[in-house]
Structures are given as structure tokens and as C-alpha cells.
Design a binder for these strands. Structure first.
Lengths: 205, 205
DNA sequence: GTCTATATACAGATAGAC
DNA sequence: GTCTATCTGTATATAGAC
């Protein structure tokens, strides 16, 4: 790779890093192109030498994320887990939770983008079902092995995903300063989703 | 009330009604002032004779909603309910669900507005806790009477609220055309929140 | 009170010098 | 490749006639 190209890569990286910071500070929608270039210490026009639009930059951030996720998950098996097992359910929730925490800028951006797309686009439902296909498959497996579910796997999976993403967004964006620990949240959700409000000791209806 | 004032009220009402339609069609953020006035068959400038801004109009819609809600709920008692009772839990979920369905334009607008406020504002967490204070109180009552909860009442209530609002938004805005019935959703959520994924018959850990 | 016409503001995007 | 300067489109809001 030549020096010129290396410098270009450096600028692109600086813009992406600046964008990440701005998205967390101002949110995706409120972040202007000039906010990003200013934060990166570059001129406004330089932005378009690397990205066609803010949307394009977001896709680049997303591609980076997928790359890293692939690195970390490479080689890992993903056999049918039993979501009625406390430890396995907790592990699923923990992985999702930490993934969102570690990538707050992207999560915030995707969330706001989906909202800005407006209704009619059906973006939220699409993403909710897409992002929870792992859960759905596990639930379908449970059903096939004779375990009764609260409802249709797609709906239950979407409900779980909605709960997770909504709570994560709310808590990560200026939630209680008192600071709930990740473990408290994950433990609470594990108990809620495993045995509900009635708790483990409750008798059948 | 004079004729002049009556005409003004009529125009204000037409603008509000047009706004409701536009919010559902295009979303709150994508709806321009001119979209509202055009849909209402009025001139652009007339808008500002009745509302200071789009935000102001939304507050007016919200005030109408609160007025109606007050009418319907007037005189109703709201004693401490037992959320571990299937029928009472279902009733709570059903009321919330239908309230959101009957006021889709406002729900959509508030949702998008909260997102556009950006992080840092902490709007979503604030609304989530505010809108679920009824649930929180019931959960606190449960805890006081010795029933073990999955976690801190505020957190559990927020989780339930997030689940409900997220799923409602997703399903109401271009969700599956196949059309899930309200009852299917409410029944599923009732089962999920009452006994979790493990189901009612599961033994204590 | 309602209209038409216009001013203001600003973000996105481009052109051309270096 | 990066910069400065500028153009274009668009939404909000106002001014003034009727």
C-alpha cells in the first residue's frame, strides 16, 4: 500500500472514529456532516472523498462491526440451545447486552435511522425479526421437542428482542446516573424471561 | 362562542386531524408543516395562526388524548392489582395495548420525537419510567406482601413497558401484513410475562 | 382568520485551487 | 488527497394583502 493510500485510510478511519463519538454525544440524526469533519480535524469537503453520505458511513461502521464479530465468533459452534435452562438463557442475554454496550454508536445510529425511516417502511419489525432469528430458531427447537411456548416463536423472539434493545437504548443514553450494573440488568431479565412475574415456585393455573 | 372563533376552532381541528393522518402515513419527523396544511386544505401560513410549531401541535394532540382518557377513567378505582394473577395481568396489558392502537399517530410521534431528541437527553428512560409508574407501584406492592420479584420494580416495570411499546410500534407500522390479532399478541405476552419461557409447570431451580 | 409571496436559515453536496 | 469557497435544495417562519 502506497503512502498516499495509507493517508487516505487514516483520514477515513479518523472520520469514522469521530462519527462514533458524535453519534453518542448528539445522536445520529442530529449529527451533521460538518460535526464529523470538525471533530476529526478535517475540512468539510474531505468527507465526500471517502463516503457518499452519512448513511454510507454508517454502513461502513456496520461492516467493521460484522468483521470483528466474525473474528470473535469464528470457529464457535452454535448448536440448539435450551432457552429454558437458566445458564444458557443468561448467556444469550449477556452476549446480546454486551454487544450493544460495546457498540453504542452503531446501535444508536441504527435505532434512530429505523425511526426516521418512518412507519410504512416497516423497518423496525423487519430488523426485530432479522436480529432475533437465533432466538426464534431456539424457540422452534423447543417447540419441536414438545415444550409448550407462550406463543408463536417469531412473536416471542421479537418480543424478547424488543425488550432488550429498548431497554439497552434507554439505559445507555442518559439513563439513571446512579448506574445499574450490567449484571443486575442481565440477572433481572433472565429471571423475568425464565419464570415471569409469578416466579419459579408458582403452581400451574 | 362567536362565528369567527368557531371557524378558527374548525380550522385548528382540521389541522390536527390532518396531522394525525400524516403522522401515520409519513411519520412525525418526515411530516412537514406544508404536508399538514395541504392535507387539511389550508394555506401554509394558516398553520401558525393556531400552533407555534409542529411540536406545539403534538402537545395539543396529547392534551386531547389526556382529556379523553380522563373522561373514560373518571370514577374508576385503581386499587393495588395482583400482577401474578393471570386475568389481572392480561387486563393491564390489554388496556395498554388498545390505548396505543387507538392512538397510533400520537404514539408514533412521541416515539420518533424521543429518538430525535438524541441521547444525552435521556428522554427514553424518562418516559419509560414515567409511563410505567402504575406497573411499578403494583410490583412494589407485590414485593411488600412478600412475593419475590425478578428484580428492582423500576427496572422490571421499565422492561415491561419497553417490551410493550417497542412491539406495538413495530407491529402497528407495517408489521406482518398477514395480520396478527390483538388477542394473539396480548395472550402471548400474558403467558410470557406471567410464567416466562419455562412455563407454568416448571419446578423451582 | 386566511391567503399569497417571500425572507431566513441551514444542511448537503460540489468545483476548483493547492 | 485535502483544502476553501460556493451552490443548491428545502423547511421554517413571517409580512402584508384581502
Amino acid at each position: 500500500m502506497g503512502v498516499r493510500k495509507a493517508k487516505a485510510e487514516e483520514t477515513a478511519a479518523a472520520l469514522k472514529e469521530a462519527a462514533r463519538r458524535q453519534f453518542v454525544e448528539r445522536g445520529y440524526l442530529n449529527t451533521k456532516i460538518t460535526d464529523i469533519t470538525a471533530a476529526a480535524g478535517r475540512a468539510t469537503g474531505s468527507f465526500y472523498d471517502h463516503f457518499a453520505s452519512k448513511e454510507d458511513l454508517l454502513q461502513a461502521l456496520l461492516a467493521d462491526l460484522h468483521g470483528h464479530a466474525h473474528d470473535r465468533l469464528a470457529g464457535e459452534d452454535h448448536p440448539p440451545h435450551d432457552l429454558t435452562d437458566r445458564d444458557q438463557l443468561r448467556e444469550h442475554l449477556a452476549v446480546a447486552w454486551h454487544l450493544m454496550r460495546d457498540n453504542r454508536p452503531i446501535m444508536i445510529a441504527l435505532f434512530e435511522q429505523a425511526m426516521a425511516a418512518g412507519p410504512g417502511a416497516g423497518e423496525l419489525w423487519r430488523r426485530l425479526t432479522e436480529d432475533t432469528w437465533v432466538l426464534r430458531e431456539h424457540l422452534e427447537h423447543l417447540r419441536e421437542t414438545g415444550h409448550p411456548l407462550p406463543g408463536d416463536p417469531e412473536l416471542v423472539a421479537a418480543a424478547m428482542g424488543g425488550l432488550l434493545s429498548m431497554l439497552a437504548y434507554a439505559l445507555f443514553t442518559g439513563g439513571p446516573k446512579s448506574g445499574r450494573s450490567d449484571d443486575e440488568v442481565i440477572d433481572t431479565l433472565t429471571r423475568l424471561l425464565l419464570h415471569g412475574l409469578a416466579g419459579p415456585g408458582s403452581p400451574p393455573a
